[in-house]
């Protein structure tokens, strides 16, 4: 399998971080960045490879988080089992919302807006339904045992999320080489042409959305286990929808490494801005937003775009596997 080696190398390298430092500041930082990378990878499949920009990945993230939390607290289901069911539930929500949207032929901003609306509807439902704890939210009971998917140390959490990111990257690499992946890119580039060539565009997009949602839901499940508390605003709020699209677009849309790269850069940027400004409320975010604009201005195809430009300049040949929409 070509292209898997760099992924394995990166993951292995990252996996050694806990051996180098026991600083939980670093680990916690990386866990959050990897979580964003994971949800961003989900978004990337649909948005980057499929060209369907979602503003509502919170719908899947939140479903994963709520299903795993509610199953544990209300029905006494084992956390790992809840994790698996949570991912499945996210996939179902993805398939359903995708079926509704794609069958109606929604694309572009219309698709973006309907995903946003789905997430909002779920957020409102979660904030009034008794089973989700309504507005009070759901608190997962503290039970620091591996069987309960809770760990005393940050390290297992770190390795788990890293493994999930690694798996999502390999999955993306496999999809790139698959017929499904080729169809997906064809649909992105020219849906009518793809249809004319016999590609069932709706089905392809639906498949992408389902997998994309499952990945985002996995992120949600992880969030619930890591923080042990969710409410409607955390699970279905717009913050995660934005983070999910920010990471791949900054990192390099439609590339395997884009979301990871983007998440690390965006999170680092946020922390550096905090360091620079001390405790002044708001100032760090001013810098963060400003740098974001500058990054977009100078790297319109994301960081992966810069990297491939540099490689091209170096070798004077177009690199293989170029997936950016240039």
């Amino acid at each position: 399998m070509k292209g898997v080696a760099p992924i394995l190398a990166t993951v292995t390298l990252l996996a050694t971080v806990p051996l180098i430092t026991s600083s939980n500041v670093v680990l916690n930082f990386l866990v959050m960045a990897l979580l964003i990378a994971l949800v961003g990878q989900g978004w990337n499949l649909l948005g980057g490879y499929g060209g369907q920009y979602s503003f509502g990945h919170a719908a899947f993230f939140g479903t994963g988080a709520y299903v795993t939390a509610v199953l544990q607290m209300q029905y006494g289901v084992n956390a790992w089992m809840g994790f698996v069911i949570g991912i499945a539930a996210g996939a179902v929500v993805g398939a359903l919302t995708g079926a509704v949207s794609f069958r109606s032929g929604l694309k572009g901003s219309y698709f973006a807006l309907i995903t946003l609306a789905f997430a909002e509807v779920l957020r409102i439902i979660a904030s009034v339904t008794p089973i989700t704890g309504a507005g009070v939210g759901t608190l997962i009971k503290l039970d620091l045992r591996p069987e309960a998917f809770q760990f005393q140390s940050r390290v297992p959490f770190y390795w788990i999320i890293l493994a999930m990111v690694g798996i999502s990257m390999i999955l993306m690499r496999l999809i790139e080489d698959s017929r499904f992946g080729a169809y997906l890119v064809a649909v992105r580039e020219n849906e009518d042409a793809a249809r004319a060539l016999g590609v069932d565009a709706t089905r392809v997009k639906l498949g992408a959305m389902t997998i994309s949602a499952a990945i985002a839901a996995a992120g949600g499940c992880f969030y619930a286990q890591y923080f042990l508390f969710i409410d409607a605003g955390i699970a279905y709020g717009p913050w995660i929808s934005i983070e999910a699209l920010l990471a791949p677009i900054i990192g390099g849309i439609g590339t395997v490494f884009g979301p990871l790269l983007g998440a690390l850069v965006v999170k680092t940027l946020g922390e550096l801005a905090k360091l620079m400004t001390g405790g002044a409320p708001g100032l760090d975010l001013v810098i963060y937003g400003g740098v974001l604009i500058v990054v977009v201005a100078f790297a319109p195809r994301g960081i992966a775009g810069i990297v491939s430009d540099m490689r091209r300049r170096f070798y004077r040949t177009p690199p293989p596997g170029e997936n950016g929409r240039g």
């Binding site: 390298l13 180098i20 430092t21 026991s22 500041v25 670093v26 930082f29 990386l30 999170k267 360091l275």
Partner: peptide
């Protein structure tokens, strides 16, 4: 703990350190 100080310095000088710097530097 004591071991980690030197390891931390090491980390800063690596490529990885750049990504993790935010967390480490201020400590």
């Amino acid at each position: 703990q004591s071991l980690n100080v030197s390891r931390r310095r090491f980390l800063q000088s690596t490529a990885l350190g750049a990504a993790a710097a935010a967390g480490v530097l201020q400590a």
